[in-house]
Simulated assay, not measured.
Amino acid sequence: MESSQSIVLGDVEMFRVVEWQGTLMSGPELLPGTTDRTWRDNIDWLAPDHWDPATESVVATIQTWVLRSGGRTILVDTGVGNGRERPGRALFHRRHGDFLDRLARAGVHPDEVDLVINTHLHGDHVGWNTRDADGQWVPAFPHAQYLIPAADDRWFGPAGGYAGGRRPDDRLLYEDSVAPIHRAGRAVLWEGTHRIDDRLVLESAPGHTPGSSVLTVESGAERAILVGDLVHSPLQLLDPSCGSCLCLDPARAAATRHRILERAADRRELVIPAHFGGSGAVEIRRTGTHFELGEWAAASAVPR
């Protein structure tokens, strides 16, 4: 699953380029509020895109969404990257893949990228911010501005003791994937909300990390919201109170999830999480506090 399906919302085109797809951990490990039976009872629609019955493991995708808006090329999250020291995550450690080649085959060349958005500063969302140039980390997209949530920059950077110093990976990812962006003068820190253009708005959505954010796309009567790691499984779209083991502040993440998903249902926004396989995007509906899945996005293949 290399890429790339196109979703067109008014004047905005969106497609994704996949860096990696596979199984991560068991369902109850990822979502502690679930049981093995929860996943088995939903096998008919979770498998194969979101859960693998053979291994009873969650299926996840690491990918970059590419947006074309107002004549600009915008990347949302940049995956794991190559050659990173990540001793705490075997999947990310010293990885070598062909992601930049995949971007190029999708018609996206590094010099032509105008804007990079990091929805938050976890290692699978910032890795291709930079590339290795003769032993130095430099911006992989040299002409782009990088929009970085200020709260995450403080927390994961030296001001926050590299996320409190609990994991060596947090210091490593900041130093190889974020600090070089600052040194190159390409970082733009933002808080609260940040309007990119008439169609795109970033909004703080804390809980998963202090600076986690979502990106709203609105063009004409059509809307979508790229929610980053607000959800990791479609089960959380049905029950927003269901938390992930990956969230720094699970209670705050659940409150944020309720708020964002209620609005998405009311506004008929297409919901696009960072790590969903399949079509990657779905509508949700609600009656009071009860949520249901609507239609999954009908996306046509992008000509290559």
Results as ranks from 00 to 15, higher is better:
residue 1 M to D: 11
residue 4 S to I: 01
residue 5 Q to C: 09
residue 13 E to C: 08
residue 18 V to P: 02
residue 21 Q to Y: 01
residue 25 M to A: 13
residue 28 P to C: 05
residue 31 L to W: 09
residue 31 L to E: 12
residue 39 W to Q: 03
residue 41 D to K: 05
residue 51 W to G: 02
residue 53 P to N: 10
residue 53 P to E: 14
residue 56 E to P: 10
residue 59 V to A: 03
residue 71 G to S: 06
residue 72 R to P: 02
residue 80 V to M: 11
residue 83 G to N: 14
residue 95 R to G: 03
residue 98 D to P: 13
residue 99 F to L: 13
residue 99 F to T: 09
residue 112 E to M: 07
residue 113 V to C: 10
residue 115 L to Q: 00
residue 127 G to D: 10
residue 127 G to F: 00
residue 140 A to C: 08
residue 143 H to M: 00
residue 144 A to C: 13
residue 148 I to L: 15
residue 149 P to Q: 00
residue 151 A to Q: 11
residue 162 Y to D: 13
residue 166 R to S: 04
residue 169 D to C: 06
residue 169 D to M: 08
residue 172 L to A: 15
residue 177 S to P: 09
residue 178 V to C: 00
residue 188 V to T: 13
residue 190 W to R: 03
residue 202 L to H: 01
residue 208 H to V: 04
residue 210 P to C: 05
residue 212 S to Q: 11
residue 214 V to A: 12
residue 216 T to V: 07
residue 216 T to R: 15
residue 217 V to S: 08
residue 225 I to F: 00
residue 226 L to M: 01
residue 228 G to W: 00
residue 229 D to R: 14
residue 231 V to D: 08
residue 232 H to Q: 09
residue 243 G to I: 06
residue 246 L to P: 00
residue 253 A to T: 03
residue 268 R to L: 08
residue 269 E to L: 01
residue 272 I to Q: 02
residue 282 V to I: 14
residue 284 I to A: 05
residue 294 G to M: 05
residue 297 A to F: 04
residue 299 A to K: 02
